[in-house]
Computed example of a mutant assay.
Amino acid sequence: MGSFWMLFAIYTALFLLGMFMMKAGLYTLSGHRLKRWLMRFTATPLQGFAAGLATTALLQSSSAVMVMTVGLVAAGYLSFRQSIGIILGSNIGSTVTTELMTLDIGDGAIPLLVSGALLVFFGRHRLVLGIGMTTVGLAAVLFAMDGFGSLAKPLAAYPFVDAWLKETNRSVAVGLLVGIVLTALVHSSAATIGIAMGFLNEQLLTLSAAIALLLGANIGTCITGLLASIGSSKEAQLTAYTHLWLNVVGAALFAFWTEPLASFAARLSPAPDVQLAHVSVLFNVICSVAALPFVGAIEKVILFLHDRNRA
């Protein structure tokens, strides 16, 4: 069993490394313009929404955008109110990653990795280096996704994993808890969703159970922003709390609709992993678009809950 868990750890590390490489490559291409975009195009909630969506889609990491946003609020470049629109947009931008994870390029991952590595090692121009790092990262993520799928059935043969899968398939609450804890540990909701996709493709998880894991992952990813806000200004802490509450409320509401969501997603695609990716898009778009007109009310609620002196 140790060898399987070792491979599982290796694939998880490869996935996280790939995500880091993609983020670093895309940041190399965009430079510090992303920070300037966030500061310049956030005058209204709608502008902040668009800026958060675009920045997260470019960086392939909602956690990175949250850390950046918390830092800008702490430094006084953004207000707490401005950060709410960014958070809502960032939640939608993060779904680009889940859709990319479903790509099936077969043996194309190898030339993708080789070509990217050549660009990294021999590229001298910033543009070439950025493209190379992004390509290597994407190839690593796709390799890891294949690895998760190949390990799913062997891991499920062990009593502990089998019991966990059965409990997750039976209980939405268990799926939520597993998603929260696993994401908080690895600091990547994409990694948790990737693992869920591996079990889902092997028919070891039901789609409704995988949706529960996805909802939990959306809550667990808030730990990064909360950690980044420790010791920061009050407004920076309020930003992190807002990110947490928006995801908690959204997940709590959708937890009652995992079966209908699974039925609807099954009509969109025959591939289980693509179905889960589409649910991620649907969940985040509905929650963020529904909350956008109420930025002022959200601000007042968060102030009431966490800063009553100003409420």
Rank of each mutant, 00 (worst) to 15 (best):
M22G: 08
I131H: 05
A144T: 08
T206I: 03
T102R: 03
A156L: 07
T224F: 02
G123N: 03
A43T: 11
I131W: 04
L185M: 04
S61R: 05
F49M: 10
L113Y: 12
G194E: 11
L282Y: 07
N201K: 04
E299M: 11
I131P: 10
H187I: 03
T258G: 14
L227P: 06
F199I: 01
L29K: 03
H306Q: 14
S208M: 10
G225K: 00
I86F: 01
P270G: 09
Y77H: 12
G175P: 02
L119D: 13
L305V: 08
L142I: 05
A291V: 07
G93V: 01
Q275A: 05
A240D: 03
K153I: 07
W5M: 12
A291R: 03
D146H: 13
F294N: 14
S79D: 01
M21F: 13
K166A: 08
L200S: 08
F148G: 10
M39N: 15
F15V: 10
T242I: 11
A266D: 05
I84D: 03
V274L: 11
G106N: 06
A184E: 03
V301N: 07
W257E: 15
A255W: 04
A255E: 06
L261I: 07
L292E: 06
L16D: 13
D107P: 15
T183C: 04
A74H: 08
L112E: 14
V289Y: 07
P159M: 03
G31E: 06
N284T: 00
L7I: 12
R126N: 13
F264K: 11
R170S: 11
R40T: 15
A139Y: 07
L78C: 06
A311T: 10
L58K: 09
A24N: 14
A191Y: 02
S94Q: 01
S30L: 15
T221G: 01
G225F: 04
S30N: 15
G250A: 08
T168K: 01
W5L: 11
T221D: 02
L29H: 04
I180G: 09
Q82G: 07
G106P: 06
T98P: 02
D107W: 14
P111T: 10
V120F: 04
V128Q: 09
A117Y: 11
V141L: 07
G108N: 04
V285A: 13
P111A: 12
A277L: 04
A163Y: 06
A117F: 15
F49T: 08
T55C: 15
L176D: 04
R33L: 14
G89Q: 00
L282K: 02
S79W: 00
R33S: 15
Q82L: 03
S115Q: 07
Q275L: 05
L227F: 11
W245T: 14
V285N: 11
A156W: 06
A140N: 07
V128L: 13
D146A: 15
S280F: 01
T239N: 05
P159A: 09
T28F: 11
G108Y: 07
H278I: 12
V96M: 01
A228P: 09
N201V: 08
R40H: 15
G93L: 00
S188Q: 10
L112W: 12
I302P: 12
I211W: 03
A50R: 02
F20K: 14
I230C: 12
E167Y: 09
I180M: 06
A109N: 13
F160G: 15
G149R: 05
G179E: 00
I230K: 07
S94Y: 01
G179H: 00
L151Q: 10
E235R: 02
V249F: 13
Q203F: 12
G106K: 06
I10W: 05
